[in-house]
Design a binder for these strands. Structure first.
Ligand SMILES: [Mn+2]
Ligand SMILES: [Mn+2]
Ligand SMILES: [Zn+2]
Ligand SMILES: [Zn+2]
Lengths: 138, 138
DNA sequence: AAAATAGATGCATTGGAAGTGCATTATTGC
DNA sequence: GCAATAATGCACTTCCAATGCATCTATTTT
């Protein structure tokens, strides 16, 4: 079991108090978080610091960015050993139109998608919208 | 062959000069257009009018809104008889990371996607990112 | 240890895009 | 033509992303 410190260091991210806190926040959160969510969790911290911290995490592939169609970017921790590139890392995301929460369905990989001749697929974003388990009442 | 006037009227959209122009612009455009694209095409028109015209088109299901992950909404005409809802209308979109253009791949329908128990799928957004045919050099 | 360097954080400000309230103009139905 | 209704235009607001620069902190070098 790697500690958070080790995870950060393995990605050449300097360990700071703030970064540890933000990492923990994302780790404890079951749903993808917006920057505002992070802000609300750390009211004393500066918005820019939070913004840049999360951005660093994304650049170093320990957090992935989710575009669920709401127009507001959401963030979630990557799985261990995720490279954020290989096809096997691509999972689908579910956005609940009722509670507005977005979750990673990491077990649900994205199926092979055919594209026309001449097009080269490098990445795939798949978002399913509807009613989440909590909101559908079962 | 329906005229544009007939298409608008069939969806209870009043025919105005501006709306005809915007419709034609979208029809001639092979790639999905941002609001800025529309603005640039009609510099004399007011931004709000363009915004609300496109919005009306979306609400009446003659234009669909595309969220390709760039953070900027894009618009494209729906196909004839599109309801924007039925599963058979859902096609995939391709976003080129090189030229930044997004195109509808209307022939490529979105495959069935399984979601976990309790989740109810109502809509699916599938965007493939990579290199388009023009940019890949073939 | 002190100095030098690099990196992180905080504050102020900017920019872009979406959205709205309200006055004016055009269109429609009578 | 007149009244009602819808479309358009202008001004303004809100929201989030992003950046320049000063300051503080940690690391490295001497
Ligand atoms: Mn995810
Ligand atoms: Mn499309
Ligand atoms: Zn929900
Ligand atoms: Zn291209």
């Amino acid at each position: 079991m790697e500690t958070i410190e080790q995870i950060l260091e393995s990605k050449n991210i300097r360990v700071t108090a703030m970064r540890l806190l933000i990492y923990k926040f994302l780790a404890e959160n079951q749903v993808a978080a917006t920057l505002s969510d992070v802000e609300n969790a750390f009211e004393k911290a500066d918005r820019t610091t939070l913004y840049r911290t999360v951005k660093t995490f994304v650049e170093r592939d320990i957090v992935h960015q989710i575009d669920d169609g709401t127009g507001i970017v959401k963030y979630a921790l990557c799985e261990q050993n995720c490279s954020c590139e290989i096809e096997t890392d691509l999972h689908l995301h579910f956005h609940c139109n009722n509670c507005n929460e977005t979750v990673c369905l990491t077990e649900h990989k994205i199926p092979k998608i055919k594209v026309p001749d001449g097009f080269v697929s490098e990445n795939i974003n798949l978002v399913v919208k509807g009613m989440c388990d909590k909101c559908s009442g079962q």
